[in-house]
C-alpha cells in the first residue's frame, strides 16, 4: 500500500507540474504582455521597459515560470489588473460558492442515480428498465444550462417556490442553501443519468459471476444479492465515473453560475475574460485544474481501499 501511495503521489506531483506549465504557456502566447496592457497604447517605450523590468517580464520564460510557480506555492497568485486586489483572496472567496455547489450536485446525482440504477438492473430487459434507460438517454442529451432555464421558468416564475438567482451569502445558511438548490439540480440531473447507466451495466456485469450464483444458491433473493454482493463489486467503475463527474461538475458550475448569477469561480472567470484580466483567468483555471487532479488522486486512493487487488499494480 505504501509503495502504491508513493507512486500515486509522484504522478500527482508530475501532473500538477505539467498542468501548471501548460496553463502558464498558454497565457504567454497572448500578444502583448501585462505591462503594455496596464499602461495602455499611449505609453512611452522607456516607461514600458521600466515597468517590464520591475515586473520581471524581461527575464527568460523558464525563470518567470519558476518564479510564478514558487509564488503560487506560497499562496501568492499576484494581483488582479482591474481590481488591484490579491487574486488568492478573490479565488478563495468565490470557492465558498462553487465548491459547495459542486459537492451538492455530486451528492444529488448519487442520490438520484443509485436507486434508479439498482431499479433498472433488477428489472433488466423488462418495461421498467426500458423506460428508465430511455429517460437517462434524455438526461444525457440535456444541456445543463438550458435545463437550468426551464427549472427557473417552472419553480421560480410559475410556482414562485425558489429564487431565480442571486446568492445571499453564508451568513444566512438556509437562504444560501435554497439559492444553490436549483443550480445543483440543473448540474446533477445529466450527471445522474450517466451515473445510473454506469451503475446498471456494472451491476449487470456482476450477474454472471460465481459469487452471485453462490449467494442465490444459499437462498438470497435477487434483490438482496444485488444490494449486498453486486453493489460493492460494481463500485469500482461507479467511483471512477463519480471522480470524473466531480470535475465536470466544477467546470459545469462555471456555466450554471452564469444562469443563476451566483458569485462563484465561474462568474469570476467570465468577468475577468470580459475585462481581459488574464492573470485572474489563469489563476482561476489553475485552481480548477489542480482541484480536478487532486480529486482524481483521491479517487485512486478510494479504489485501493475498495478493491485491494488494485494496490498491487
Amino acid at each position: 500500500m505504501l509503495g502504491y501511495l508513493l507512486r500515486r503521489m509522484i504522478s500527482l506531483g508530475l501532473s500538477l507540474l505539467v498542468a501548471s506549465a501548460l496553463i502558464f504557456s498558454v497565457v504567454e502566447l497572448v500578444p502583448g504582455d501585462p505591462a503594455s496592457f496596464m499602461l495602455g497604447t499611449g505609453a512611452q517605450p522607456e516607461t514600458l521597459a521600466a515597468l517590464r523590468s520591475q515586473m520581471g517580464l524581461d527575464q527568460p520564460l523558464p525563470l518567470r515560470y519558476a518564479r510564478w510557480l514558487a509564488a503560487i506555492l506560497q499562496g501568492d497568485f499576484g494581483q488582479s489588473f482591474t481590481y488591484k486586489t490579491p487574486i488568492a483572496g478573490m479565488i478563495a472567496e468565490r470557492m465558498t460558492v462553487s465548491l459547495p455547489l459542486a459537492v451538492m450536485a455530486l451528492l444529488l446525482a448519487a442520490v438520484i442515480a443509485f436507486p434508479v440504477g439498482l431499479f433498472a438492473a433488477a428489472r433488466r430487459g423488462r418495461i421498467g428498465d426500458a423506460a428508465v434507460m430511455g429517460g437517462t438517454q434524455l438526461g444525457i442529451a440535456l444541456p445543463n444550462f438550458w435545463f437550468a432555464m426551464l427549472l427557473v421558468l417552472l419553480f421560480s416564475v410559475r410556482l414562485r417556490l425558489l429564487p431565480a438567482g442571486g446568492f445571499p451569502g453564508w451568513g444566512q445558511p438556509v437562504a444560501a442553501l435554497t439559492a444553490l438548490l436549483l443550480p445543483a439540480v440543473a448540474l446533477a440531473l445529466p450527471q445522474a443519468a450517466i451515473l445510473a447507466r454506469v451503475l446498471r451495466s456494472a451491476l449487470i456485469e456482476t450477474q454472471g459471476q460465481d459469487y452471485i450464483r453462490t449467494a442465490r444458491a444459499k437462498g438470497l433473493s435477487a434483490a438482496q444479492t444485488l444490494r449486498r454482493h453486486a453493489l460493492r463489486n460494481a463500485m469500482v467503475p461507479v467511483l471512477t465515473i463519480m471522480g470524473m463527474q466531480f470535475s465536470f461538475l466544477l467546470a459545469g458550475a462555471i456555466i450554471i453560475e452564469n444562469v443563476f448569477y451566483l458569485p462563484g469561480l465561474g462568474r469570476l472567470i467570465f468577468q475577468a475574460i470580459s475585462q481581459r484580466d488574464l492573470i485572474v483567468v489563469q489563476s482561476a483555471v489553475l485552481v480548477l485544474v489542480a482541484a480536478v487532479i487532486a480529486v482524481t488522486f483521491l479517487v485512486d486512493l478510494a479504489y485501493a481501499a475498495v478493491d485491494p487487488r488494485l494496490r498491487r499494480r
Binding site: 501532473s15 498542468a19 497572448v30 472567470i269 488574464l278 483567468v281 483555471v285 480548477l288 480536478v292
Partner: peptide
C-alpha cells in the same frame, strides 16, 4: 492521454477562447 483526461475540458476550452 492521462494528462488531457485529467483536465476539465470545458475549463481548457474557456482558457483557449479567452486567450485567443
Amino acid at each position: 492521454n492521462d494528462l488531457v483526461f485529467a483536465f476539465p475540458s470545458l475549463v481548457i476550452a474557456i482558457l483557449i477562447t479567452a486567450v485567443f
